[in-house]
Design a binder for these strands. Structure first.
Length: 172
DNA sequence: CCCTGATTCGC
DNA sequence: GCGAATCAGG
């Protein structure tokens, strides 16, 4: 694939938004992260302050307040991410409440996961494949958080994933 | 091992 | 100009 004006423009945009080279590569499609980085250099775009630190730079810091009583709504940290991410957070709050409502007692210190807004092509063996949003809509994406043991979901979504439903009532 | 960006250098 | 290979780092 070659660098059309549109692709270059998108590259500039995403890069300035702080997305990592690999994420940008995935969104553009048809190019590797190296290609992206190489292009960034050729375009003389400002690089990231520190290598590897980009991981930190790309994600907003979470202000971890002390673990508290079951105050569901309050568990969702207020964040200043991107406009689209804002909608995502809202959706996740809803999911959490539904679960808490059913049965599942919330775990000790499980923090509500903030999804990365990964597209289908950005998923790897180690990213959570939990879908978020309406597949027919534009804001649809996957959780994308780290999933241990190459599990299809992150630890948080694994719990939501396999819940046989109301079967396991008498157990315990 | 996973990831990140930076650089090099043959194409 | 391009980007895989490589390097350097977290």
């Amino acid at each position: 694939m070659n660098w059309t004006d549109e692709r270059v423009e998108k590259l500039k945009k995403l890069w300035s938004e702080g997305l990592s080279a690999s994420q940008i590569a995935a969104q553009l499609g048809g190019v590797s992260r190296n290609a992206v980085i190489g292009k960034v250099h050729r375009l003389s775009l400002p690089g990231r302050a520190k290598a590897g630190g980009a991981t930190t730079a790309a994600r907003p810091k979470r202000t971890t307040s002390a673990p508290r009583a079951p105050n569901y709504a309050a568990r969702v940290a207020t964040r200043t991410v991107t406009r689209t991410a804002g909608a995502t957070v809202l959706k996740e709050e809803i999911e959490v409440d539904l679960v808490a409502d059913q049965d599942l007692e919330l775990a000790p210190n499980v923090v509500v996961p903030m999804s990365r807004r990964l597209g289908l092509t950005e998923l790897t063996e180690r990213t959570c494949k939990w879908p978020i949003g309406d597949p027919l809509k534009e804001e649809f994406h996957f959780c994308g958080n780290d999933s241990p043991e190459s599990s299809p979901y992150c630890s948080y979504h694994t719990r939501l994933a396999y819940q046989p439903s109301g079967e396991r009532r008498r157990m315990r």
